[in-house]
Design a protein around this nucleic acid. Sequence first.
DNA 1: AGCTAAGTGGACAGTGTGTCCGCTTGCAAG
DNA 2: CTTGCAAGCGGACACACTGTCCACTTAGCT
Lengths: 180, 180
Amino acid sequence: MERADAARNRARILEAAADLFRTKGAPNVTMDDIAKAAGVGRGTLYRRYPDRASIAVALLDEHERALQEKLIRGEPPLGPGAPAPERLAAFYAAMVDLLEEHAPLILGAEVGRSRFETGAYGFWRVHVRSLLGEVPEADALVDALLAPLAPDVYTYQREVRGLTPAQIAAGLTRLAGALG
Amino acid sequence: MERADAARNRARILEAAADLFRTKGAPNVTMDDIAKAAGVGRGTLYRRYPDRASIAVALLDEHERALQEKLIRGEPPLGPGAPAPERLAAFYAAMVDLLEEHAPLILGAEVGRSRFETGAYGFWRVHVRSLLGEVPEADALVDALLAPLAPDVYTYQREVRGLTPAQIAAGLTRLAGALG
DNA sequence: AGCTAAGTGGACAGTGTGTCCGCTTGCAAG
DNA sequence: CTTGCAAGCGGACACACTGTCCACTTAGCT
């Protein structure tokens, strides 16, 4: 059981962090900023979240879980029942939505190599791997197909190349369609 | 014109940095380490190279230039003359070689978003874009096709997934073949 | 009300960054 | 060979962020 003050502080920390990530950009937010904004001390912050990444992961958790649920039990083409290329395309489209909504957050969650260490990456990997079926090169292909969903690639396409989410999704759909 | 002592120091810095990147891994090497190992002061180091990335870029320069040369003027299928999918596959294979050889270095070169800001990325981008021709989604597809070549993806595939360079290249070849 | 363990917060030490400025040295002209 | 001087050098310094530690506070049970 969690004490009431602890719960209140957790909520305050998450709220403050979400706000700071959005306004200042994840890499520019220090642990100290978050503690200050949440009105708690450094020790309190570190007790729960050892680094920025773990805060971002906590913030992302519910959104990613919702998508995971849809992939497993949702309607086709996202859920089971549609042909693999269509399901892959639908997955790409859903991920583009997620990135568009939360790219700054996801960017904040991924310090260094941590992208591949999150449970979410493992889940996407298993999902796409299963869609590929018995293709011999599938084990190498999986990560190649997930690579375009890296948040830094997405923000580069959006902000530097000036592409729209629709254009990016279209490109990925083509990629999905080309396999089979 | 560059003074003799300056030239000597530059050589020493690059040599020391290459050594440290290889042995300790790029992210664990501090500017101070490099200065110490090269036998120069911090100021001297910063005069030429404002950060780790610029050192790694300098070290990579000649290797990347060699590949760029082959893409423009080399024999097919790497150089001009072969069908686009084959040229793309050859490009992928060459990049896998480059990554296998220099992944730690490339990883060191890419602090934050800098991957997309190097001249090299721009070059790969133009090359692949030209291979895609008039495909409507090409502008979005380019970055998606380059994404699997990110050094962190490569090292993840090699070290965590345990894939061989040949397997990775095979996966990418399949990707290249699927377009057209 | 009293007890106690969970929770809190800020001081502290350690580490890395980037800058600044007095000193040194290569090198070209006399 | 000597001299002048600008380019080059290097370490001290100020600053920022991290992560830990521990004396104090407080929620929630009895």
